[in-house]
Amino acid sequence: MATATEVQRRYGKTQRVDRWWVEPAFLGGGLLLFVIYSTVSALILGNSWHYEAGPYLSPFFEPLIKPGWVPEWISPAVFILWAPLGFRTTCYYYRKAYYRSYLLSPPACAVTEPAKSYSGESKFPLILQNAHRFFLYVALLFIPVLWYGAAKSFWLSGEGFGVGVGSLILVANAFLLMMFTLSCNSLRHMVGGGLNCFSCTAVTRGRRRVWEIQTLWNEHHRGWAWASLISVGMADLYVHLVANGVITDLNTWTNF
């Protein structure tokens, strides 16, 4: 006869009767798919799989940094991807998702976790999660860069202005990545959450307004996180497929 304590201590043991494993499995699977795809596309294939098609540049490579001293087998994406990788890895939402799905810490609420001991984010390496603020500063710099890439996609050299499916995808992607960044919990703190007196001055009253609006975005941070993750993967895939002649981009230019 099991005691209540034993029932609780055994890993995975829970009295939940709902399908609690579905969500962490689904989210964990989704994240894994993205990691595999982006590693193969941006890092392993790198320069050997074309990532530029006309005015389109895959967002994994934006802005394109390709100095001559870098050997051909190193993908230019390595100069870019550390930033979004760092930003997303330390993101409060993604932390929740992968702590649950991969570290099983915990797998789901009221489901016992396997680890024998636990120190959370108080020790190395997880204390590094506090670098989220740093990665936010970098991610904010990337917003204009991504919009520049999206704007560029309307201008085919030799022909000038036009619109293609690719340019629309890049615009949507820049928007979603921007919203993911702007809905960040750290930003919520910076714009106003760190204040104790909203009513004190005109500036703090204004910051409160911004904080309120940002809070509405932040409530959907998870949604922006997944939408932008999917959009950036799809944008990369689309540009690659066009660039490598697998599909043809529908657009207004005559000589794409």
């Binding site: 810490s105 120190s119 997880l126």
Partner: peptide, 8 residues
Amino acid sequence: DYCNITKC
């Protein structure tokens, strides 16, 4: 710092 924001 022990909290890993898994939101339960």
